[in-house]
């Protein structure tokens, strides 16, 4: 009888421990958080401040397939040797990694405008940061609702 009680208690304790472990595993998400995105942005801009505006970020408000979402980003600029866009960086909040792509231009580019296709692992906000030749940084954000998430399917 005593033996039976003990084994039942050990079993319950083991079960509780197992449940706890399971909970720990499920709360660690495989995605970047807005904080990580902020760090990634900091790594690019350094100590400079980022102002809203001048950058135009075009994304569909609703995307059926997160594996390929069309993105167009542009910055208004005369693109002369004295005043041009040096780079445009794109970041996401909730992908496994906050960086998406960095484009680098010179005055030879003519326009600071690029289109590509990106992956989105979640419904989230995408941010683009434009780096100008005078050292200033400008940003724009766009929210996208994703119905089929990228990165999650089995290979």
């Amino acid at each position: 009888m005593d033996d039976h009680e003990t084994s039942r208690r050990t079993f319950l304790q083991a079960a509780a421990a197992g449940l706890g472990l399971g909970a720990v595993i499920t709360v660690a998400p495989a995605q970047a958080t807005p904080k990580e995105m902020e760090d990634a942005v900091r790594k690019v801009v350094g100590q400079a401040s980022v102002s809203k505006g001048r950058v135009k970020l075009e994304l569909p408000p609703l995307s059926e397939n997160g594996n390929t979402v069309p993105l167009t980003v542009s910055v208004e600029s005369p693109m002369t040797p004295a005043d041009h866009v040096r780079a445009i960086h794109v970041f996401t909040e909730l992908n496994p990694q906050p960086d998406v792509v960095s484009f680098r231009f010179g005055p030879r580019a003519g326009h600071a405008r690029v289109s590509t296709r990106i992956r989105l692992a979640n419904t989230q906000t995408v941010t683009a940061i434009g780096e100008l030749s005078d050292g200033s940084f400008w940003s724009a954000s766009a929210a996208v609702v994703v119905t089929l998430a990228a990165c999650l399917e089995d290979a």
């Binding site: 496994p96 990694q97 484009f103 590509t116 989105l120």
Partner: peptide
């Protein structure tokens, strides 16, 4: 022109 790609490019 140059682009630095990360896994989030389709």
């Amino acid at each position: 022109f140059r682009a630095e790609l990360h896994p989030a490019i389709a």
